[in-house]
């Protein structure tokens, strides 16, 4: 074992981002040789150290215990890098933030009183300082590897914050919005996935969250031109990054502008 000591932590999440680490199949041996991974419960290592050079954090903060634990992780970490939509924006579980948590609890669990949870799901950066964020639901393997190799070579960590549209054009994809009239969040969504969904003919679901420069009112007008209703737009915005500030502000405003269901049209 050599290289910086690393811990990978899980908070409220589906483990998909941790699995993306393990999905680096061809590179796993090289990763294991380059990083001294001491804590990664998903894969086995469970050494609690006083200090890790790098902590990778998956998941959002949803319990009082989480709040304490992320502070402890922060105190033990040199660099703290968050992985994925839960850790960077609260994840899909942040839909609770605008719902009645008691109703959710009793709808889902037979014994809701056994459940100890906060009313909100919040990103890691709402609680401790975060040094770098990898977006996505889940994160992209390419961005993870680019981040690790940049750290090892002491290079700036390369994140492209421009829109998914750039990745579509680099790939030579047809624009599903302009050419097919498909609802697509690509123009407002942060790059990183190499335009995965549009490359397969689907509209972007926005799982990398808002790009560096977001104009949701402009996108709403564009959706109007292809007969995509506010209802569909709100549904698209309220998924993995529902509590990302730009998405949340716009979806709340569009919802307030019209009663749910009245303009519903299938995308």
């Amino acid at each position: 074992m050599s290289g910086p000591t690393v811990a990978i932590w899980k908070f409220a999440s589906c483990d998909g981002c941790q699995l993306t680490v393990l999905d680096c199949e061809d590179e796993l041996l090289a990763i294991a040789a380059a990083l001294d991974i001491r804590m990664f419960l998903e894969a086995g290592p469970a050494q609690m150290l006083d200090h890790y050079d790098i902590s990778l954090v998956e998941g959002s903060i949803t319990t009082a215990h989480d709040v304490e634990r992320i502070r402890d992780v922060r105190a033990r970490s040199g660099l703290l890098i968050t992985l994925g939509a839960c850790a960077t924006a609260g994840g899909i579980q942040a839909l609770r933030n605008t719902a009645d948590i008691d109703a959710c609890r009793s709808n889902v669990y037979a014994r809701p009183e056994w459940l100890d949870t906060l009313a909100t799901s919040t990103p890691i950066a709402a609680h401790v300082q975060v040094d770098h964020e990898l977006r996505g639901c889940p994160i992209a393997k390419t961005e993870l590897l680019a981040t690790i190799t940049a750290l090892l070579a002491q290079r700036r960590m390369p994140i492209s914050a421009y829109s998914v549209c750039v990745e579509c054009k680099l790939a030579g994809n047809p624009c599903v919005l302009v050419a097919h009239g498909t609802a697509c969040l690509g123009p407002v969504t942060h790059a990183g996935c190499a335009a995965l969904c549009p490359s397969l003919g689907r509209g972007c679901f926005g799982c990398f969250g808002p790009s560096e420069s977001v104009n949701l009112d402009g996108l709403r007008s564009a959706f109007g031109e292809i007969d995509v209703s506010d209802d569909v737009l709100v549904h698209l915005l309220r998924t993995f990054n529902t509590e990302a500030p730009e998405f949340s502000e716009a979806s709340n405003r569009y919802r307030a502008a019209g009663p749910e269901g009245t303009t519903r049209r299938d995308p």
Binding site: C165, K169, S213, N215, D217, S221
Partner: peptide
């Protein structure tokens, strides 16, 4: 224009 422009870069890419 900025109220409508998505700053998505499509014009420059094409």
């Amino acid at each position: 224009v900025a109220a409508r422009c998505l700053s998505c870069s499509n014009c420059t890419m094409v």
